[in-house]
Simulated scan of single mutants.
Amino acid sequence: MTAGTTGRGGTGISILGTAQHTAWQERVLPPVERLTGGMWSVPVPIPDNPLRYTLCYLVPGDGGLVVVDPGWDTDAGWDALLAGLRAAGAALSDVSGIVAMHVHPDHHGLSERLREQSGAWIAMHPAERDSLPQRAGLAQPGARRESLRRGLRRWGVPEEAVKDLLSPFDERSADHRPFTMAEPDVLLEDGDAVPLPGRRLHAVWTPGHTPGHLCLREPDAGLLLTGDHVLPRITPNIGLSRAPDDAPLTRFLESLERTAAFDDHDALPAHEYRFRGLAARTRQLRDHHEQRCRELLTVIDGLGSPTVWQVAERLSWSRPWAEVGQMRIGALAETEAHIRHLADQGELDFTTPAPTRDADPSADVPAVRVRPAARTAH
């Protein structure tokens, strides 16, 4: 994720989770809280990550409850989740279902452990199921490193930077062990009801951050669980998790239009703090990406036919490019997503080399280059 605009003081945006906001500022875990409509917010820590925690939600129904985004799979995370259940007066035996709003490890990591201990079903969108590592060809040892290496080559990353960005994926890393994540028992399409008796909870498909990202709407209490789609201060990364031949930024902007329609709902995000003002916040996010597109066009116009890397290193980021570190991977993916969006609008020429059927999977791919679209004189 990249730094976005703070919600405090923004027109039409108000902070509801004041204890969460204070904890965010003080860089500590917020408290477990009972929310409108009888839901509970449970912070689950993320190890060694600036996001610090995922806000897991407990949604009670008749005779059971659904856990939304159990969090990162660590013993500390598991203990935090159990503590949240106890605070809500519940036990593992009360958990009937789990909804993964998307399958990043800070959301879906504990799902398998929770299913094993409770017998609950797991639900997600079909497109999210298809992006699971074992379905995307990334479960075998070294597969993620190889996929990333080819992506870095495609983006035109210099050799020294390739080595640097691949260094966390060496033979001692988790990438050299098989990696799978929990498969779903239930698939939720856009508009589907979560199978929780006594509670109206509906899936709202919001692709962009990931192909199958879901928000969850509880109309009776006027709540929208926004996952990573809309956060009060941070803009989610767009492009790092995407389906082949998808246009993630275009999908994200379309999803923001849908989300803005729930301006009378309280927003319950997966990170930071609860807020009200979805129309204003989604407008800020659209404006952010529009400004980024304008900046990107200016950079490309001055470079001629650059690679994605050459574009990204000249864009403005929250810190100097040389200090972005490992997050340059996400920055490159997001740069490509913006380029793809502008190419689809006819403002850039951008083609991604497609591997042939018989291509050696370990072979390098040519670096993608981008240039202003040719204009026909009238």
Score class of each variant (00 low, 15 high):
L166A: 09
P168F: 02
P168W: 03
P168S: 10
P168Q: 08
D170C: 07
D170I: 00
E171C: 09
E171V: 11
E171L: 14
E171T: 14
E171D: 14
R172I: 08
R172A: 15
S173V: 02
S173W: 03
S173F: 04
A174Y: 13
A174C: 12
A174F: 12
A174G: 13
D175N: 15
D175E: 15
D175I: 06
D175S: 14
H176Q: 15
H176N: 15
H176D: 13
H176E: 15
P178Y: 12
P178F: 10
P178V: 03
P178I: 02
F179L: 13
F179P: 00
T180V: 14
T180N: 10
T180Y: 11
T180F: 12
M181W: 09
M181L: 15
M181E: 15
M181F: 10
M181C: 03
A182N: 07
A182I: 09
A182K: 03
E183F: 02
E183C: 04
E183S: 11
P184W: 02
P184I: 01
P184N: 03
D185V: 11
D185W: 11
V186K: 01
L187I: 05
L187N: 05
L187T: 05
L187C: 09
L188T: 11
L188H: 06
L188K: 05
E189C: 08
E189Y: 04
E189D: 14
E189T: 07
E189Q: 13
D190G: 12
D190S: 10
D190P: 11
G191Q: 10
D192G: 09
D192A: 15
D192M: 02
V194T: 06
V194W: 00
V194D: 02
V194S: 01
P195G: 06
P195E: 04
P195A: 00
L196N: 08
L196R: 05
P197K: 02
P197C: 03
P197A: 02
P197F: 05
G198V: 04
G198H: 02
G198L: 05
G198S: 08
R199E: 01
R199S: 11
R199G: 08
R200L: 05
R200Q: 13
